[in-house]
Amino acid sequence: MAEKKIWSEKASMRDFYSTPIHWILTFITVGFYFLIIYLWRLNTRYSLTDERLIIETGILSKHIDEIELFRIKDTKLSQGLCQRFVGLGNISVTSTDSTPDLVMICLPNAKEKREQLRTLSNAARSKKGVRTLVHE
């Protein structure tokens, strides 16, 4: 059975326009700060399937990283004040594989996407028969 794509998203620039520090840094660097942030976000894509979370990054060279959903231990949502105004959020993912903690930045509808990720990771663990041990 083929993987089913749930969503695919690039980091948004909406928070950039509403955050004064971004404008100050852009002015000081004569636009280079904006250009770097824009190119980085333009060339970073997050995709969620029913089996994996896939992260593609890179401007000149490509780097693809993925986390099997059954390996995800925890997800967290954070939203700065400006992000809340424009409907964006950051999702942090902690997993049991060698991939370090991953942060997907400036995602639209981040709360819904985090909930989808959580639901799918729980389903993947159940499907694979993976049990989580809690040490106290």
Rank of each mutant, 00 (worst) to 15 (best):
residue 36 I to V: 15
residue 82 C to H: 02
residue 92 S to H: 14
residue 51 E to K: 11
residue 28 I to V: 07
residue 69 L to N: 07
residue 93 V to A: 11
residue 79 Q to C: 11
residue 103 V to G: 01
residue 25 L to G: 02
residue 111 K to F: 01
residue 80 G to E: 09
residue 50 D to S: 06
residue 3 E to Y: 06
residue 99 T to M: 09
residue 68 E to T: 06
residue 134 V to Y: 15
residue 117 L to T: 03
residue 9 E to T: 11
residue 124 A to V: 03
residue 121 S to R: 01
residue 83 Q to F: 00
residue 50 D to A: 02
residue 83 Q to C: 00
residue 76 K to E: 06
residue 52 R to I: 02
residue 104 M to E: 03
residue 5 K to H: 03
residue 14 R to N: 15
residue 108 P to S: 14
residue 131 R to C: 11
residue 37 I to K: 07
residue 53 L to D: 02
residue 33 Y to G: 07
residue 7 W to N: 11
residue 90 N to C: 14
residue 118 R to L: 04
residue 83 Q to W: 01
residue 85 F to H: 13
residue 100 P to N: 12
residue 64 I to M: 12
residue 108 P to W: 13
residue 26 T to Q: 02
residue 44 T to E: 05
residue 1 M to H: 12
residue 28 I to M: 09
residue 79 Q to W: 00
residue 35 L to F: 03
residue 70 F to W: 14
residue 89 G to P: 02
residue 94 T to L: 04
residue 115 E to P: 02
residue 111 K to P: 04
residue 19 T to G: 00
residue 91 I to P: 00
residue 130 V to D: 08
residue 97 D to E: 14
residue 69 L to W: 13
residue 71 R to C: 12
residue 82 C to E: 12
residue 41 R to Q: 04
residue 121 S to N: 08
residue 111 K to M: 05
residue 97 D to L: 12
residue 72 I to D: 03
residue 51 E to F: 12
residue 63 H to R: 03
residue 117 L to R: 12
residue 61 S to H: 14
residue 3 E to C: 03
residue 115 E to C: 05
residue 67 I to L: 06
residue 2 A to Y: 12
residue 106 C to H: 07
residue 33 Y to S: 11
residue 29 T to H: 14
residue 46 Y to I: 05
residue 22 H to P: 09
residue 55 I to S: 12
residue 20 P to G: 01
residue 115 E to R: 08
residue 3 E to K: 12
residue 43 N to H: 06
residue 135 H to T: 08
residue 77 L to N: 10
residue 58 G to Y: 15
residue 43 N to M: 09
residue 9 E to Y: 02
residue 16 F to Q: 04
residue 8 S to W: 13
residue 19 T to P: 06
residue 44 T to F: 00
residue 124 A to H: 02
residue 62 K to Q: 07
residue 128 K to Y: 06
residue 62 K to W: 02
residue 58 G to K: 03
residue 24 I to V: 15
residue 102 L to P: 05
residue 108 P to Y: 11
residue 13 M to D: 11
residue 15 D to A: 15
residue 119 T to Y: 05
residue 100 P to G: 09
residue 27 F to M: 02
residue 63 H to G: 07
residue 108 P to I: 03
residue 48 L to H: 13
residue 20 P to Y: 08
